[in-house]
Amino acid sequence: MNIVENFDLYAPRLINKKELLSAGHRACQGCGEVLGVRLMCKALGENTVIASATGCMEIVTSMFPTTAWEVPWIHVAFENAAAVASGVEAGLKGLRKKGKIDDRYIKVVGMAGDGGTMDIGMQALSGAMERGHDMLFVCFDNEAYMNTGIQRSSGTPMGASTTTAPAGKVSSGQKTWKKNMAEIIVAHGVPYVATACPSYPLDFIRKVEKAKSIKGPSYIHCFTVCPTGWRCGSHLAIAMGRLAVESGVFPLYEVENGKYKVSSEMPKKLKPVKDYFKAQGRFRHLGEAEIQKIQKKVENEYQKILDKAKYLKAWD
């Protein structure tokens, strides 16, 4: 899918032109994650409060006394973004019902990286989702602890070389399959769960807008390319995101009240994972047999999503 250059001329209302994450932040050149955050803010609009976990997005946007945030934003610690967001939601609710603040609708959003969501932040997130707070949680997944220096997380894919699961003479990097976080949130009975990638900005924005409209918990797992950690060119963040989707490594879909829908961006025929791997230094050590093992797993996992979309019905 290509977006016409003068998109704005034809469809000026589709994207909020106001920047709520301002320029001047300190993200690396070509960072896919900060692009994701920026697009998310555009979709959310001004009546938003964001609770962020510790991580790249926190340090690059909030170097005291400067800030890149044009929406109310709070950072407390690494593992508790979802708990802080649930407190913000409860606080606003408590104040609103007593008339201590105006009664505008404010969307509360929690955000964290893959480590802050899937590893250390999993308990707080599970609690917040289970309690049914009116909040969106977005995981910006760049598949390792990039802020601390590219250490493996449970979001790191099989075979990727990281600084704590390096490829070596007797190891081919990550030994485990990536944790399927979106499915874990679906299992919480959350009304809206989606996967997205800033390489598909309109799809991502539409999903954030949909999540915003849900009065209750929602979750978006946003796949964000980290050229620094993945060892690819900083001009390749968008291309790598596309290839991850086109190869089925990171399928785009949404689950609304248990009903799966594969996003229209998904190709009829998947590209080989090899095409996705070859520009990334983190996969460079993989041999043909290892690539084929991953290829098979990717196809199986994608088929599961297609089957769910075909057979599963909405909860109610």
Binding site: I74, A77, A83, G87, V88, G94
Partner: peptide, 24 residues
């Protein structure tokens, strides 16, 4: 008042920090 039945004390303190941030 809103009473949040958190899943741990860590989240209890996190939640009251967030809520105090709203002015509650």
């Amino acid at each position: 008042a809103e009473f949040v039945t958190v899943e741990s004390e860590h989240s209890a303190m996190s939640a009251v920090i967030g809520a105090s941030g709203t002015g509650a």
